[in-house]
Amino acid sequence: MTFSIVARSADGTAHGVAVASKFLAVGAAVPAAEAAVGALATQSYANLAYRPQGLALLRTGTAAADVVAGLTAADPGRAQRQLGVVGTGGDGAGWTGPGCHGWAGGAYGDGFAIQGNILTGPEVVEAMRLAWLAGDPAAPLARRLLAALRAGDAAGGDKRGRQSAALLVVSPGQGYGGTGDTVVDLRVDDHPAPCAELARLLGIHSLLFDRPDPATLLDLDGDLATEIRTLLTVRGHTHSDLDTALASWAGVENLEERLVPGRIDPLVLTHLRTT
């Protein structure tokens, strides 16, 4: 009923899951991830107990293949289950029970597990595999996962149609404000084009919450400072200290994660100029 990719970033610091299905709110059932531990996807009559049990096994250093073997061996419903698991090192692993609705199968390799059932055919998994392998290893994991998911969607996806999609990425201390581990947690629960909508949401998320690129920051001085003060004044943010005025406006716009004292992110500047 679903196709998904579970993967680890090239540097090993992030883990995540991207999933889509003709199923309401697939993100509520399939993905699970824990920073510095691993990630998994449980689907095809999803066994939700796999999520805490799988993460508990990964937490002890159990290899992905052994996590899959342990979870499925203890499950009397394993014939209809599908599972993908990635740990902190080595290959991803998975299970496709013989009772899964066709087409069903998966592909696995270093740091990734791809799986799907009720698909238009094996071309869905293959398109996802190729997209993952072709991705820039230095790119954010969320972007790589989404690219693979969209490749599977474009190749046919769930043969019943489209309804929901989700994206979950974790990394130690990389969540909002540095106070958590959840980097991205986005869900499209009921939509005619869920993968495209998920991409739109990720674009907004990146604008609001990604850290600024130090190489692109602009100094808050000269004509630029004058322009920014004028724009802020028009919007009612008139504090005499420019950084304070900018922070006041950015807080309203939810752009506080992109602020750097004495400088401005070009994406923040564009937003200020156009809103």
Score class of each variant (00 low, 15 high):
residue 202 L to M: 09
residue 16 G to E: 09
residue 262 G to R: 08
residue 13 T to A: 15
residue 18 A to R: 08
residue 240 S to H: 12
residue 194 P to R: 01
residue 44 S to P: 02
residue 164 S to C: 07
residue 56 A to G: 14
residue 103 W to V: 03
residue 179 T to Y: 03
residue 15 H to V: 14
residue 95 W to G: 09
residue 202 L to E: 07
residue 17 V to Q: 11
residue 30 V to P: 13
residue 263 R to F: 06
residue 255 L to V: 05
residue 140 P to D: 10
residue 187 R to G: 06
residue 241 D to M: 06
residue 35 A to T: 12
residue 26 V to M: 14
residue 45 Y to T: 08
residue 259 L to C: 06
residue 163 Q to P: 07
residue 6 V to D: 07
residue 44 S to V: 14
residue 219 D to Y: 10
residue 249 W to E: 04
residue 190 D to V: 07
residue 214 P to L: 03
residue 74 A to G: 07
residue 134 A to I: 03
residue 262 G to N: 07
residue 68 V to W: 06
residue 275 T to S: 14
residue 214 P to N: 13
residue 204 I to Y: 05
residue 24 L to H: 14
residue 171 S to T: 09
residue 168 L to I: 05
residue 233 T to I: 04
residue 61 G to R: 10
residue 60 T to N: 03
residue 68 V to D: 11
residue 173 G to D: 14
residue 270 T to N: 13
residue 117 N to L: 01
residue 252 V to T: 15
residue 185 D to S: 13
residue 141 L to W: 03
residue 40 L to P: 06
residue 274 T to C: 06
residue 58 L to R: 04
residue 171 S to P: 00
residue 258 R to Q: 11
residue 13 T to G: 15
residue 120 T to L: 02
residue 234 V to A: 15
residue 178 G to A: 07
residue 121 G to V: 01
residue 259 L to I: 06
residue 24 L to I: 14
residue 59 R to F: 07
residue 76 P to F: 14
residue 73 A to L: 05
residue 165 A to I: 08
residue 4 S to M: 11
residue 261 P to F: 11
residue 135 G to Q: 08
residue 115 Q to D: 11
residue 231 L to W: 06
residue 236 G to P: 05
residue 178 G to K: 03
residue 252 V to C: 07
residue 233 T to P: 01
residue 267 L to V: 11
residue 224 L to E: 04
residue 158 D to W: 04
residue 81 R to K: 15
residue 178 G to M: 08
residue 22 K to N: 13
residue 132 W to K: 00
residue 119 L to F: 12
residue 257 E to D: 13
residue 119 L to G: 01
residue 228 I to Q: 05
residue 88 T to G: 00
residue 142 A to K: 04
residue 176 Y to G: 03
residue 83 L to A: 11
residue 137 P to T: 11
residue 23 F to L: 15
residue 159 K to C: 10
residue 79 A to F: 10
residue 164 S to W: 01
residue 179 T to N: 03
residue 15 H to K: 02
residue 66 D to M: 08
residue 91 D to C: 07
residue 39 A to H: 03
residue 125 V to R: 00
